[in-house]
Simulated scan of single mutants.
Amino acid sequence: MPLSRWDPASALARIENEVSNAAQHAHSTSVRTSTDGDDLVITVDGVDPSNVDVQVSGGTLTVRGQGGSSTSGSYDQGGVHFSSSSSSSSSFARSFSLPSGVDQSDVVTEPSGNGVKIRIKNAA
């Protein structure tokens, strides 16, 4: 194997590229509330709907979820094979106070865009 001169600028550029890619794939979750007639609507973006748990107990609606992402890449340079991988995971939990009389049967959850929409009937 021939010797090659180490190029710190090239190594730094590769690291910056990998960090940038990891940041772009980082998991972020946003929660928005709105009303639709007499219904309260909670929209959770940035999470797979199958990873969301919604429960009503004691006048409180609790939304829990988790998500994550992973990336990998490889390339050859100067006869040497380089590979990298990164992963991230996160979890979230949000609680909302509900008006009296709201129970689990008043809550409907459905996929929406890149997340989930939770509709609480007659809660607005």
Rank of each mutant, 00 (worst) to 15 (best):
P2G: 12
L3T: 06
S4M: 09
R5G: 02
R5C: 00
W6R: 12
A9T: 09
A9P: 00
S10T: 09
S10W: 14
A11Q: 13
A11G: 07
A13Y: 06
I15T: 08
E16W: 01
N17C: 04
N17V: 01
V19Y: 07
A22N: 03
A23Q: 14
Q24K: 15
A26K: 07
H27M: 12
H27C: 13
T29Q: 13
T29D: 05
R32F: 12
D36M: 03
D36Q: 14
G37E: 11
D38M: 05
I42A: 02
T43E: 15
T43P: 00
V44G: 00
V44Y: 01
N51A: 10
V52Q: 01
D53V: 07
V56G: 02
V56H: 02
V56W: 05
S57W: 01
G59I: 05
L61V: 02
T62W: 06
T62Y: 04
V63S: 01
V63E: 00
R64S: 10
Q66Y: 08
G68S: 06
S69G: 15
S69L: 04
S70A: 15
G73S: 12
S74C: 03
S74M: 04
Y75M: 06
Y75P: 02
Y75E: 12
Y75Q: 08
D76T: 14
V80N: 13
H81I: 00
H81W: 02
S83G: 08
S85W: 07
S86R: 01
S88E: 13
S88C: 11
S89L: 10
S90H: 03
S91T: 13
S91A: 15
F92L: 10
F92E: 08
A93N: 07
R94H: 12
R94K: 14
F96W: 07
P99I: 09
P99S: 08
V102T: 04
D103G: 11
Q104Y: 03
Q104A: 14
Q104L: 05
S105F: 07
S105H: 11
V107R: 03
V108W: 03
V108S: 15
T109M: 12
P111C: 01
P111E: 03
S112D: 13
S112F: 10
G113F: 08
N114F: 02
N114Q: 11
G115K: 00
K117R: 15
K117C: 01
K117Q: 14
K117L: 06
K117S: 13
R119F: 03
R119Y: 03
